[in-house]
Amino acid sequence: MISVARSVTAACALGAALAACGTAGTPGAKPAGSASPSATRPPVLAPGPGRLTPVFEHGPRTLGKTVALTFDADMTADQGPRAAAGEHFDNPDLIGTLRTLKVPATIFMTGRWAEQYPAQARSLGHDPQFEVANHSYSHYAFTDDCYGLPTVAEDRMKTDVERAYAALRKAGVPHALPYFRFPGGCYDRQALRALSGIGVTAVQWDVVSGDAFATDADAVAQQVLDGVKPGSVVVMHCTRSAAPTTEQVVRTVVPELRKQGYRFVKVSELIGETNGRPSGGRQEAPRTARSG
Score class of each variant (00 low, 15 high):
residue 221 A to G: 08
residue 183 P to S: 10
residue 225 L to A: 12
residue 70 T to C: 12
residue 173 V to L: 04
residue 163 R to H: 13
residue 215 T to W: 06
residue 177 L to A: 04
residue 63 L to G: 12
residue 46 A to V: 12
residue 59 G to T: 07
residue 63 L to M: 09
residue 41 R to H: 01
residue 51 R to F: 10
residue 147 Y to G: 08
residue 1 M to R: 11
residue 205 W to K: 01
residue 190 Q to F: 03
residue 200 V to D: 14
residue 219 A to I: 06
residue 154 E to F: 01
residue 199 G to M: 07
residue 225 L to R: 11
residue 17 A to T: 01
residue 203 V to L: 15
residue 243 A to L: 11
residue 18 L to W: 04
residue 216 D to V: 03
residue 126 H to G: 12
residue 186 C to V: 00
residue 156 R to T: 00
residue 258 R to L: 02
residue 179 Y to H: 06
residue 61 R to S: 15
residue 73 A to T: 04
residue 110 T to A: 15
residue 150 P to K: 11
residue 211 D to H: 02
residue 166 A to L: 14
residue 287 R to T: 07
residue 91 N to F: 11
residue 9 T to I: 10
residue 138 S to V: 03
residue 206 D to C: 07
residue 146 C to S: 04
residue 28 G to D: 14
residue 68 A to W: 08
residue 182 F to V: 02
residue 185 G to F: 03
residue 35 A to L: 12
residue 31 P to E: 06
residue 141 A to V: 02
residue 70 T to Q: 09
residue 233 V to S: 08
residue 160 D to I: 09
residue 42 P to Y: 06
residue 164 A to H: 01
residue 15 G to V: 02
residue 200 V to T: 13
residue 226 D to A: 15
residue 147 Y to P: 00
residue 143 T to D: 00
residue 188 D to K: 02
residue 273 E to K: 13
residue 35 A to K: 04
residue 237 H to S: 12
residue 42 P to M: 05
residue 181 R to D: 06
residue 29 A to H: 06
residue 152 V to G: 05
residue 183 P to F: 09
residue 276 G to L: 07
residue 196 S to K: 09
residue 273 E to C: 01
residue 289 A to L: 15
residue 65 K to L: 06
residue 287 R to K: 06
residue 279 S to L: 05
residue 207 V to Q: 08
residue 111 G to V: 10
residue 26 T to M: 11
residue 42 P to E: 09
residue 18 L to R: 05
residue 5 A to K: 08
residue 39 A to Q: 13
residue 148 G to Y: 03
residue 32 A to K: 07
residue 232 S to P: 13
residue 58 H to Y: 09
residue 87 E to L: 14
residue 20 A to E: 08
residue 129 Q to I: 00
residue 35 A to D: 09
residue 33 G to W: 07
residue 61 R to G: 13
residue 71 F to R: 02
residue 268 S to D: 08
residue 180 F to G: 05
residue 133 A to Q: 10
residue 140 Y to C: 07
residue 262 Y to T: 15
residue 221 A to H: 03
residue 70 T to W: 07
residue 110 T to G: 09
residue 126 H to Q: 14
residue 270 L to H: 00
residue 130 F to L: 06
residue 33 G to T: 10
residue 268 S to A: 13
residue 208 V to K: 01
residue 263 R to L: 04
residue 136 S to H: 04
residue 262 Y to D: 12
residue 75 M to Y: 05
residue 2 I to D: 04
residue 62 T to A: 15
residue 116 Q to P: 00
residue 112 R to N: 07
